[in-house]
Design a protein around this nucleic acid. Structure first.
Lengths: 347, 347
DNA sequence: ATGAAAGCGCTAACAT
DNA sequence: ATGTTAGCGCTTTCAT
């Protein structure tokens, strides 16, 4: 950091303001442009962001508060987001939310947002596990734009980019129905969390549209943790009239569910069919390979960056905006075709 | 960011420099201390890091270049590191290396280091997938301390914190031997990568110490990717004289190996015993549960932070330092006891 | 212990 | 198009 704009000015015999202008894309005489470029290269000058930020009231930094990336899905979003942001001149200050083993630390969210807005960020990505009371307060007060990824604040105080959860859930549950399943269990996410509610809604709509009876004992209230998946599965299997298929509404729930399935020695899909939201990166090694809803992670990242950058540039045109991205169902081996089984004379 | 130190000075009728002194832990009269604290609380003053950094030539930011966190192991390190650093007043600028699906992007490492040192960081954590030529050059020139996590630069230009790989590998391979295995395959990491070389060494030492013949066809040269695990396993299984056990030297290799095992319908541990480096967070759902070497992730994070903070405070006392942390073997169900099998009259 | 003032590197308003 | 200069918020001598 020894080389400053002053050194470049001296080297080129130009005023520092001219150098500054050049750096920021202003017009300079062709001859000077070359001189400046040469000097910058020779000296290895890099603008000091702290100094620049002091004047412009910008930090060229974007904060990101997100789950601990213990799955490919989240990891891809982080990775892609960082790459795009960096290409646009922002670096990423990252605060990981607790990983699966730890507690969910739900009540820290506001603290993290405050921390980042205090330290200074030009924008913020947040993917809450659970919405806290007015956790975006400091961002709002300081007019720091926030884009929520994979979630949407109830009070529309931020933009949101998320998958079409209801649609994805609908499609995958419908797949079960089309394969002859009528007794379908679901392990849900926490009430009040939009993505959770929507996935539940997708399930409910399929049941409604196909005229299938809604059984309360098949709807397990979970909270998107592995534990709730594990216990939910146990509960479902302990029913007298067991479901023939279960829908896990996110990655962690699915993990817990699989653990229970394994512990109880349930054969999939012979005894029980399984589908899940969030594509399972380890599906290649999990027996059998899971039929799943895949979220368009790259698109989510791109859209979120695009939106946040627009906001950071002051374009609040369509605020608050909620962008929905289509999901994709990946059909694998975890669903039994009950019709075919019947033909074969099976149970 | 509207409230500045000036406002606090005005509110308290003290000089700016006194407020500054107080903020930085200097001595002020008791009465003034109270006045200042009250004013800060009332106004909600937060020091501007950009301005502060402009004077102190610090950014209060630490860079981290690390794998994309697609497994629990990496996620825990990132999460823990960020938490510790934040408690010490640093925020984390994160650059994820490519996730598993993508290319390894090995030749970008230097670019990332340059980016971070240019943007300005007080310190740097790096976990390279592969060492590039002098990728720490810019950090060295700018005297930005670097702590390598889970790796150690060949040229000792940085501190390193890593698990006792050779020891861990030794222990887990020895476990195979103790269970009667003599024909043991290994899928290695890339030559020249310290952690890879050490894990290989642990394997070799067991073979040496127990007087087991070293068979070249059992040593598969991999590169720590899932692909090499997959292909390595296929190669091993295609041998006329197959190994009875295989050692996967990292998480990704293990994943690939498991995929191959699954595709070829190999029964574990009946036909083949498996052990792996890096504890498998999904071991609960992988059939059978894998015997693995667990790295002390929390300790690694703590030690790395401790070391980097010392360096950032100018304490280069024991530089360059390499800290070794003991691993732990988790014994599960993926290893067949060949002795017991013999008694039973098995093959 | 407190205050006055210089200046970190940069941008932006204004003057040329 | 280029130069001059003030000042962003803070730390840090140097006086007092």
């Amino acid at each position: 950091m020894a080389i400053t704009i002053k050194d470049v000015a001296r080297e080129t015999n130009l005023a520092i303001s001219t150098i500054s202008k050049f750096i920021n894309g202003g017009n300079v005489r062709e001859a000077n442009r070359k001189k400046i470029e040469a000097a910058i290269a020779k000296l290895g000058f890099v603008p000091n962001d702290a100094a620049r930020g002091l004047r412009t009231f910008r930090t060229y930094t974007v904060g990101m508060i997100m789950g601990g990336a213990s799955n490919q899905h989240t990891a891809s979003i982080i990775s892609e987001t960082e790459k795009i942001l960096r290409s646009r001149g922002y670096s990423l200050t990252f605060i990981p939310l607790g990983t699966r083993e730890e507690s969910m630390e739900p009540y820290r969210l506001k603290e993290y947002v405050d921390y980042l807005t205090d330290r200074g960020v030009d924008g913020l990505f947040v993917t809450p596990m659970k919405n806290e009371i007015d956790f975006l307060k400091s961002a709002r007060e300081q007019r720091i734009p926030v884009v929520m990824i994979e979630e949407k604040a109830i009070r529309s105080e931020a933009d949101g980019v998320l998958a079409d959860c209801a649609g994805g859930a609908y499609e995958i549950v419908e797949h079960l129905v089309k394969n002859g399943h009528k007794k379908i269990g679901i392990i849900t996410g926490p009430r009040g969390k939009l993505t959770a509610d929507e996935r539940r809604r997708g399930y409910l709509r399929v049941m409604e549209d196909y005229g299938l009876p809604l059984r309360e004992d098949y709807i397990i209230e979970g909270d998107f943790t592995g534990k709730s998946g594990y216990e939910g599965m146990k509960k479902l299997w302990s029913l007298e009239d067991r479901p023939t298929a279960v829908f896990a509404t996110n990655y962690d729930v699915c993990l817990g569910m699989l653990e229970a399935v394994r512990n109880m020695g349930i054969r999939v899909p012979e005894e029980l069919s399984l589908v899940t939201f969030d594509d399972f990166d380890l599906s290649v090694i999990v027996q059998p390979r899971l039929t799943a809803v895949r979220q368009p992670v790259l698109q989510i990242a791109e859209t979120a960056c695009e939106l946040l950058c627009r906001r950071m540039n002051g374009d609040m045109n369509d605020f608050p905006r909620t962008v929905r991205l289509k999901t994709e169902c990946i059909y694998r081996d975890s669903v039994m075709d009950l019709y075919r089984q019947e033909e074969k004379g099976g149970d």
